[in-house]
Design a protein around this nucleic acid. Structure first.
Length: 534
DNA sequence: GATCAAGGCCAC
DNA sequence: GTGGCCTTGATC
């Protein structure tokens, strides 16, 4: 199936998002992923913008670009909820009957999911745990069907442990928001169709990417948080310390330290289960040290304050543990390297989402955006991990639902355990520099907005962005950390070290990929390939 | 009272 | 075991 689907890639994803920066247009298009010439083809429907919703296209359809879009001029202004629900089940492609356990699914997948969770069923796959699930074959492999249910975002915690009937659950408001967004999407599609058809007629792009979870959504729309819009006025912004704390608001009370970073049982695995280490964050801001006074904190540039607002650590944690949970539920043992690749892949998607909504970057042409991301993704993954460890207390490992230990540190090492010493040295160096959240986000921008990347068309824009961030960081370090000798210079010197570490990790991942040990058709692998081509 | 997402029932 | 239809009950 899906053989006639059009190609779609990071570039097109970025292109669509760029075109919608002003209008916040959300569009759905069928995708085909093609990694080189050896990978099987596959089609998905991706909803562009940050709010990504996937459904498998119906069997044998999806040939025409925009096949899932209403023809121009037919978008119904009178679209109501019922029309919106005229969608396909993301698990099997059957007709959706309503929201069930977190998302729109068909009646049969609803029942299947309920039976599985209520009766604590354990299935096995007689093949390779990658069976294709569609309406006609969904009964063949319950293992893969259930896996797909989890992959697309069906929520275990929505199945009631007490089996009480009726009423509403805590997802009610989420369903409502999702509906509202879909309705808005319907109204905006007509405009998007024109843009989309224009982009398809540009001749297509070379690379495609997909979720690592064979023909399933990367994220459900209703699970994607809104990224800060950078539109709040500087005058109304709080100081950096307060901002750093607010970024993670609202926060639940910290759970007991021993299970702070552990996935809970299926019935308690709400996102809140993975609490943010507020104390670690507070310690990472200058206001909690003797370095600065509140007056000095207020002198932090509005730009840095807004940079800090683009950070969503809570979502990072929820995504991480959500994935670890869904990938290990009902499984005796999982391939930990494969799981690590899936987590890295998910992190990469988040990174693309983050980047394309940030100032400087979002105004660049898609080609430039791609080059910058291809050059910096691994550096940023390493940096993100340093940040999570230093500011949020991310531990070295966590215990999965099935009892396996998952090496969280190895995520930051991109799978190379021997880099642990180097990584820890780097972390210690940063700790000595009192590396805080504003430092982190500025360094991240410096990694992304690298004007030295070859082939950039709008070098001036990138360089301007880089220099602006550089100046802001210099100002911040001088203002808030006057007692640390040349903090700015030392931070800049850390960048090549991060790059060296990331390059080793990339090489390792590529080798494992070539050896057939890493999941294929992932954004991670696309990035690895892309850098080697450039 | 209407809605709708839970769980339950039962023919297949 | 599956899946279509029914019942329930909190929320709007």
């Amino acid at each position: 199936m899906h053989e006639d689907a059009p190609k779609m890639s990071v570039a097109q994803n970025l292109a669509a998002s760029t075109s919608q920066n002003k209008g916040d247009v959300v569009i759905s298009v069928p995708l085909e992923y093609e990694m080189g010439s050896v990978e099987p083809k596959q089609a998905e429907t991706i909803e562009l913008d940050l709010k990504i919703a996937y459904v498998d296209p119906p069997n044998g359809t999806g040939g025409e670009p925009g096949a899932y879009l209403p023809a121009a001029g037919t978008v119904c202004d009178q679209a109501d909820t019922k029309d919106v629900i005229e969608e396909l089940c993301p698990v099997c492609g059957d007709k959706v009957s309503g929201y069930h356990y977190g998302l729109l699914t068909c009646e049969s997948c609803k029942g299947f999911f309920k039976r599985t969770v209520q009766n604590k069923k354990v299935y096995t796959c007689v093949a390779e745990r990658a069976c294709h699930i569609d309406k006609t074959q969904r009964k063949r492999c319950p293992f893969c069907r259930f896996q797909k249910c989890l992959d697309v975002g069906m929520k275990l915690e929505a199945v009631r442990a007490d089996r009480m009937r009726g009423g509403r659950n805590k997802f009610g408001p989420m369903y409502k928001r999702d509906r509202a967004r879909k309705l808005q999407m319907m109204r905006q599609r007509q405009m998007a169709v024109q843009t989309l058809r224009g982009s398809f007629s540009d001749g297509g792009l070379v690379l495609g990417f997909s979720s690592p979870y064979a023909s399933v959504p990367v994220k459900q729309e209703i699970q994607i948080p809104q990224v800060s819009s950078l539109t709040s006025s500087p005058e109304s912004s709080p100081g950096p310390a307060l901002l750093a704390a607010q970024t993670q608001q609202p926060q639940p009370p910290p759970p007991p330290a021993h299970d702070k970073w552990e996935a809970h049982s299926p019935h308690s695995a709400s996102p809140d289960a993975f609490a943010f280490d507020a104390s670690a964050t507070t310690a990472a801001t200058p206001s909690s040290t003797a370095e600065t006074t509140s007056t000095e904190a207020l002198r932090v540039s509005p730009m840095i304050r807004e940079f800090v607002q683009t950070i969503d650590d809570r979502e990072w944690q929820n995504s991480l543990f959500g994935l670890l949970q869904s990938q290990t539920y009902n499984q005796c043992e999982v391939d930990l390297f494969e799981l690590m690749c899936k987590v890295l892949d998910q992190n990469l998607f988040s990174q693309v989402d983050w980047a394309r909504n940030t100032v400087f970057f979002k105004y660049l042409k898609v080609d430039d955006q791609m080059k910058l991301l291809q050059h910096s993704w691994s550096d940023m993954l390493v940096l993100d991990h340093l940040h999570q460890r230093m500011h949020n207390g991310l531990p070295d490992e966590t215990t999965l639902h099935n009892g396996q230990k998952f090496d969280l540190l190895c995520l930051g090492l991109l799978g190379v355990p021997s880099l642990a010493d180097h990584f820890n040295e780097l972390q210690n160096k940063l700790s000595e520099l009192k590396f805080d959240i504003p430092d982190y986000i500025c360094v991240k921008f410096l990694l992304l907005l690298n004007p030295e990347v070859r082939g950039i068309v709008n070098v001036k824009c990138v360089r301007d962005g880089y220099q602006t961030v550089q100046a802001a960081l210099l100002d911040y370090t001088l203002t808030c950390y006057p007692t640390i000798q040349d903090k700015f210079g030392k931070l800049v010197m850390v960048v090549p070290e991060i790059h060296a570490l990331a390059a080793r990790g990339e090489e390792h991942l590529y080798q494992r990929h070539c050896a057939g040990q890493a999941p294929t058709q992932t954004l991670l692998m696309e990035m690895l390939h892309a850098k080697r081509k450039s």
